[in-house]
Amino acid sequence: MRYTVLGASGLIGSRSVDRLTAAGHEVVPATRSTGVDVVSGKGLREAFAGSDVVVNLTNSPTFDAASIDFFETSTAAVGAAAEEAGVRHLVILSIVGADRVPQLDYYRAKTAQENVLASGPTPYSIVRATQFFEFVEAIMSWTTDGDVVRLPRTPVQPIAASDVSAAVVGAASGGPLQGIRNIGGPEVFPLDELGRITLAARPDGRSVVTDDQAGPLAQVGGDVLTAPDDSDLGPTYYGDWLGRR
């Protein structure tokens, strides 16, 4: 089969290209550097020509309200080009609980992307993932003040990027779901505990203070950021991943 991967140079995109290529598929990596612009639609027709499946792993350059326009505009452009090219399956990566966190702009943006995709004519699959292991240190940086990291007790269920790419490729290689597949890691942590585990493995002089008002994830209540009961769970444990890095 022939796949086009949009956002092919990103964290998940690059891994997905490698997995599809290793499986013997023909893969077209599509990025801005290859002349593809998902907002204007430039290069999409050429990138989709002859492809059976398009995997859209592009991301907004911002996480504020402007991300809503990015995802709505780009998803519509991708959908129109896919229909014209006769693509049989569109796949996107979204976030577990995206539609349950309207107070965060980026989550509203990902929900808007899902809605645009689902309203289009091309069969589709949505893979919703929990937060990535690779983003834990970035999340900690949001609330770092000197040698203190303030983190809420919000429950999270992080997953390795390699496991996310495996799930994306699995969805892309199968028939369209016409719905959502949720994925997450094998363990649930309070975010403050996850920060302490991270700093114990990679000491840098900082310590974690529990603060249930700190950072954007403090706005998320209950178990919204953890994988639902019917989710597929990745095999990689956070401690093992930390040890390998």
Rank of each mutant, 00 (worst) to 15 (best):
R2D: 05
R2M: 04
V5M: 05
G7P: 06
A8G: 10
S16N: 04
V17N: 07
V17K: 07
R19P: 04
T21M: 00
A23W: 02
A23K: 11
E26P: 02
V28G: 01
P29K: 10
T34V: 11
V36P: 00
G43I: 14
L44T: 10
E46T: 13
A49F: 06
D52H: 10
L57Y: 12
N59M: 13
S60E: 03
P61Y: 07
P61N: 09
F63M: 14
F63D: 03
D64L: 10
A65V: 14
S67C: 10
S67Y: 10
I68L: 14
E72L: 10
T73W: 01
S74E: 11
S74L: 12
A76V: 12
V78R: 11
A80C: 00
A81Y: 07
E83V: 11
V87A: 09
V87K: 08
L90I: 09
S94E: 09
S94L: 13
G97L: 05
A98S: 14
D99E: 15
P102K: 06
D105V: 03
D105C: 10
Y107V: 09
A109W: 02
K110E: 00
A112C: 08
A112W: 04
E114F: 06
N115E: 14
L117S: 03
A118W: 04
T122G: 06
T122L: 01
P123K: 00
Y124H: 15
Y124N: 08
S125M: 09
S125D: 11
S125I: 02
R128N: 04
T130H: 09
T130G: 09
Q131H: 09
Q131M: 10
E134P: 03
E137P: 08
E137A: 15
E137G: 02
M140A: 09
S141H: 07
W142T: 13
T144S: 08
V148L: 07
R150F: 01
L151T: 08
P158V: 11
A160V: 06
A160P: 09
A160G: 07
V164A: 00
A171R: 06
A171Y: 03
S173E: 14
S173M: 13
G174C: 10
Q178I: 01
P186I: 03
F189S: 12
P190L: 06
E193I: 12
R196W: 01
I197V: 15
I197E: 11
I197K: 12
L199N: 03
P203H: 03
P203Q: 01
P203M: 01
R206V: 00
R206N: 05
R206K: 13
R206P: 06
S207E: 10
V208R: 05
V209C: 01
D211Q: 04
A214F: 04
G215H: 02
P216T: 08
A218T: 14
Q219L: 15
Q219V: 06
G221I: 10
G222Q: 11
V224E: 03
V224Q: 05
L225P: 04
T226L: 01
A227V: 06
A227G: 02
P228H: 07
D229R: 14
D232R: 15
G234C: 12
P235R: 08
Y237T: 04
W241I: 03
W241R: 06
W241P: 06
R245V: 00
